Amino acid sequence: MPRLFRVSARTGRESKMAWQDFLAALALMLVFEGILPFLNPGRFRNMLRMLNEMDDRLVRRIGLVSMIAGLGLLYLVR
């Protein structure tokens, strides 16, 4: 069973750790997402314009590759 859903019968400690891991990952994602707009807002706007002009299929492929790369990295780390 995935770690997120496992709960210790006595304390629920494993569940608490899973939520802490999830929130830590979410916090890191927000930090990484904010680096480019903070350091170079003009470049960030240009990237958003380019993304807006891309075909939906290409954007989906980019998202799929990103998710697969993230899952692969997570597998290697965990």
Rank of each mutant, 00 (worst) to 15 (best):
R3I: 14
R3E: 15
R3M: 15
R3A: 13
L4D: 14
L4V: 13
F5S: 13
R6D: 14
R6L: 15
V7M: 14
A9R: 15
G12R: 01
R13C: 00
K16D: 04
A18H: 01
W19C: 06
Q20M: 12
D21S: 05
D21L: 13
F22P: 00
A24E: 09
A25D: 10
L26S: 06
A27V: 05
L30H: 08
L30N: 06
L30S: 02
G34C: 07
I35H: 04
L36G: 00
L36C: 02
L36R: 05
P37W: 02
F38A: 13
G42Y: 02
G42K: 07
R43V: 05
F44C: 06
R45N: 09
R45E: 07
R45D: 10
R45Y: 05
R45V: 09
M47G: 00
R49N: 11
R49Y: 04
R49A: 12
R49D: 09
L51V: 01
E53C: 04
M54D: 10
M54L: 13
M54F: 04
R57A: 13
R57L: 12
L58H: 11
V59L: 15
V59Y: 01
V59N: 14
R60S: 03
R61Q: 10
R61I: 14
I62L: 11
I62T: 01
I62V: 09
G63S: 14
L64P: 02
V65E: 03
V65A: 10
V65Y: 03
I68L: 11
I68D: 00
G70E: 01
G72N: 03
G72V: 02
L73Y: 09
L73D: 01
L73N: 02
L74G: 02
Y75D: 03
Y75E: 00
L76E: 07
